[in-house]
């Protein structure tokens, strides 16, 4: 047996060497790629780090400070829009996820007066739900840019006269972002709430909850686990969308980048800082989502335990 052990140890050592070479090559390719790309985009000159501490014409602060405040502005706008969108999304999402038996059947045994009331209220709610559906489809089916400009035109025309252009643009931008994320979040909440099995509600009612209570105490806590990852992704997406505020003249990262490139031909440095700031927010948050999903996964709820480990469905009759 000893020669076998020795042989095996040698084999393991060889495998470890291959793995090391593989990793080294991988790191090497990434490093070489980054350096090569940088050299190409720098077009022959060398990286000017001093640019970041310089103060461009017409501005009062050094470059890095300008970028930081622009990034903070973008983040603030994103957070505001996200939170307001959350309210819209949750309310409409919940409403849209409710399934009820048809009105006429439901109100069958009631006296005519009450029945009419129920029918009218039910009809109104149904209409509301269809409107919400349309809102969501509209927001998801058209570019945010178009939505933004539509809102912008409306705000420019309808806003109080004493608001200056910047205020109007800001309001329009945030409102557009809110409506946009509201639509997407509505879909997230609807899907999350619907994914909780109907049996849960039945069981809750059997225990004694009324329908609303079942919703609050049984369905929603489970739905939270399901909506957290897509909501976090939505936040990241919204943050990236904040770059579109540049189109309506607001100073956030992208517009700052563009105006600085007009002043100084340090395009690569600007590109570097801009992308770094965006990546600083998006990459950690995206990674956190993946970790979150793994930790809070409930086998059998919504998402399968693992795409590969699924037991084949061999137990079928006939």
């Amino acid at each position: 047996m000893e020669s076998h052990e020795a042989f095996h140890r040698e084999r393991l050592r060889h495998e470890r060497r291959v793995a090391l070479a593989d990793t080294a090559a991988a790191v090497g390719i990434v490093a070489v790629g980054v350096v090569a790309a940088s050299l190409v985009f720098l077009e022959g000159r060398s990286l000017d780090l001093a640019y970041f501490t310089s103060t461009p014409r017409n501005f009062r602060s050094p470059v890095w400070q300008l970028f930081l405040s622009a990034a903070v502005f973008a983040l603030a706008a994103t957070v505001a829009a996200f939170l307001m969108g959350l309210l819209i999304g949750f309310a409409t999402g919940w409403e849209r996820s409710l399934t009820r038996p048809p009105l006429l059947a439901r109100t069958h045994g009631l006296p005519p007066g009450r029945r009419t009331l129920h029918l009218v209220a039910g009809g109104a709610l149904y209409l509301l739900r269809r409107v919400a559906d349309f809102y969501v489809e509209l927001v998801r089916g058209t570019p945010l840019l178009v939505q933004m400009f539509f809102v912008w035109e409306a705000v420019l025309i309808a806003a109080p006269a004493d608001w200056d252009l910047r205020t109007r643009s800001l309001v329009a931008g945030v409102v557009a972002m809110t409506l946009n994320t509201g639509g997407y979040q509505s879909e997230i909440f609807r899907a999350g709430i619907s994914a909780v099995p109907e049996g849960q509600v039945e069981a809750a009612r059997a225990v004694g909850f009324r329908r609303l209570g079942a919703m609050r105490h049984i369905v929603l806590p489970q739905a939270v686990r399901l909506v957290l990852p897509p909501l976090t992704n939505e936040f990241v997406t919204l943050f990236k969308s904040s770059s579109l505020l540049f189109f309506i003249g607001l100073v956030e990262l992208t517009s700052l980048a563009k105006s600085l490139t007009n002043l100084d031909p340090k395009v690569f440095e600007i590109f570097l800082l801009t992308t770094a700031l965006y990546l600083l927010v998006t990459v950690p948050v995206s990674r956190a989502v993946i970790a979150l999903e793994r930790r809070y996964r409930i086998p059998g709820l919504g998402v399968a335990a693992s795409p590969r480990g699924r037991r084949r469905r061999a137990r079928r009759t006939g």
Binding site: R140, P143, L144, L145, Y184, E187, I188, A191, P229, P230, N233, E234, V236, T237, K240, S241, L244, I290, E293, G302, V303, A304
Partner: peptide, 15 residues
């Protein structure tokens, strides 16, 4: 504008 990963989007969230 990056509308991915939303609602019926890619990868995990799509499920």
């Amino acid at each position: 504008m990056g509308e991915r990963g939303r609602g019926g989007g890619a990868g995990r969230t799509g499920t």
